[in-house]
């Protein structure tokens, strides 16, 4: 889908230009058609499991397990009732809390950091940037034992603030890197002008830079929201009854004996919904943000 929009204008010109040689146009059309077909195939391949999950969530367990998958069936809301009656509420509240707070904290820290690293470069900027991203190179699973021991020692197991701190740390490097690339797009003249007018840093940032890069902030925030919302590993290891998040709630539906696909699908659909809605609401900003600077 994105393929058609990303075709640079200069490549498109020969097709539309008058008097262009026929064979070239045909070849161009053929390429477009093929790219379109590939985009659709890839799109459907990615979307199909999601579609199947939603479909399964409206089935009975018996329908969900038929050897020949059923597309036509009598839809039921039984699974959703089951999910609500098994108490998704506290988990949802924890997920919202951990996601929203950690994302706000990330933005609060990442914006000044990215600003310093792009528009007001400090010494060894590239080293600093590399340090940020290097914290993502260690797999979480390799760090979980020390993290667990530390969290246990300070008595912070099963506490939502533990997850908030970890999610902030987890998303900060990505956010700094993303935000930095957006800051780099801000024209230097604007800043010079502000500086000549004597605007202090805070005002420059707030009234000049932030409005320009706001699509970038949206894009970054959404990425942080998605990562924090979907995070499972920390949540399952560090929480129990109080601070469990939605992904932890989901695995409770996987029973070792008995059928569970339909109910799990219903729970997973509900879990995916907030992120899908957030993405949909922020769609325009997001596209702007992700293609920010591409047209410069």
């Amino acid at each position: 889908m994105a393929v058609t929009t990303s075709t640079p204008p200069d490549e498109r010109t020969p097709d539309t230009a008058e008097g262009a040689p026929e064979p070239r146009r045909r070849r161009g059309n053929a390429v477009d058609v093929w790219l379109g077909v590939i985009a659709w195939v890839v799109g459907i391949a990615f979307f199909f499991p999601v579609f199947w999950m939603v479909l399964t969530s409206f089935k009975t367990e018996a329908d969900a397990y038929t050897p020949t998958p059923k597309i036509i069936f009598e839809p039921t809301l039984e699974q959703y009732e089951g999910v609500f009656s098994s108490g998704i509420g506290p988990y949802l509240a924890n997920s919202v809390g951990a996601t929203v707070i950690s994302t706000l904290l990330v933005l609060l820290l990442a914006i000044p950091a990215a600003f310093a690293l792009s528009l007001r470069p400090v010494q060894k900027t590239s080293d600093v940037l590399f340090f940020f991203i290097s914290t993502k190179m260690l797999p979480v699973v390799a760090a979980i034992v020390p993290i667990y021991v530390v969290v246990n020692e300070i008595g912070a197991l099963d506490n939502i603030w533990t997850l908030i701190v970890l999610y902030t740390g987890m998303n900060l490097p990505i956010a700094v890197w993303m935000m930095r690339s957006f800051f780099l797009e801000v024209p230097g003249e604007l800043l010079e002008q502000a500086s000549i007018d004597g605007a202090p840093l805070w005002r420059t940032l707030r009234e000049i830079v932030l409005p320009i890069i706001s699509p970038g902030i949206f894009a970054t925030a959404l990425i942080c929201v998605i990562f924090a919302w979907n995070e499972f590993f920390f949540a399952v290891n560090l929480t129990a009854a109080n601070a469990g998040t939605v992904p932890v709630f989901l695995v409770g539906f996987i029973t070792s004996e008995g059928l569970y696909w339909a109910q799990l699908s219903a729970a997973a659909t509900l879990a995916a919904l907030p992120v899908v809605i957030a993405g949909w609401v922020a769609q325009n900003k997001l596209v702007q943000g992700l293609s920010f600077g591409a047209v410069k």
Binding site: V96, L105, I160, W161, A243
Partner: peptide, 12 residues
């Protein structure tokens, strides 16, 4: 607002 959200989330 953080404190508010935290209040809600720490329901346990």
């Amino acid at each position: 607002s953080l404190a508010l959200v935290a209040g809600c989330s720490g329901a346990g």
